[in-house]
């Protein structure tokens, strides 16, 4: 199956790979996995006191589309507020990367990773 140029670009030059300090209180983490293909994705967001996402990092073990999807969302969420980030839909990711139908689950994985990270934020700020 042929990957789109955008997928190849993100796959070959992934943006924002890595992890933040686990103990940094402004860092929240979202972990998701896709049983269909066994891909795992970790997305970390650094969120300031105003609720703005200042920085994002990811670590993904999976196919090119999964890596590209997570790389893309780290670029997209930077500078966004929590509410704006929560609006991001997998269809936007799939469209931007021109993912074929069999790879749609990679974009769902990335959307769910953002949601899981924002859940973590809510949990941390509820107490």
């Amino acid at each position: 199956m042929a990957y789109s140029n955008k997928v190849i670009d993100h796959y070959e030059n992934p943006r924002n790979v890595g992890s933040f300090e686990k103990d940094d209180p402004s860092v929240v983490t979202g972990m998701v996995g896709a049983p269909a293909c066994g891909d795992v994705m970790k997305l970390q967001l650094k969120i300031n006191d105003q609720g703005i996402i200042e920085d994002a990092k990811f670590k993904t073990y999976g196919c090119g589309s999964a890596i590209a999807s997570s790389s893309l969302v780290t670029e997209w969420v930077k500078g966004k507020s929590i509410d704006e980030a929560a609006q991001l839909k997998n269809t936007q990711i799939a469209e931007e990367l021109a993912l074929p139908p069999v790879k749609i689950h990679c974009s769902i994985l990335a959307e769910d990773a953002i949601k899981a990270a924002l859940e973590d934020y809510k949990k941390k700020h509820a107490s």
Partner: peptide, 18 residues
């Protein structure tokens, strides 16, 4: 379960996978 698109969100299990 076939063709499901649902993601797994079990942090402990996923951390172990990582």
């Amino acid at each position: 379960l076939r063709h499901e698109q649902q993601t797994l969100q079990d942090p402990e299990f996923l951390m172990a996978q990582m």
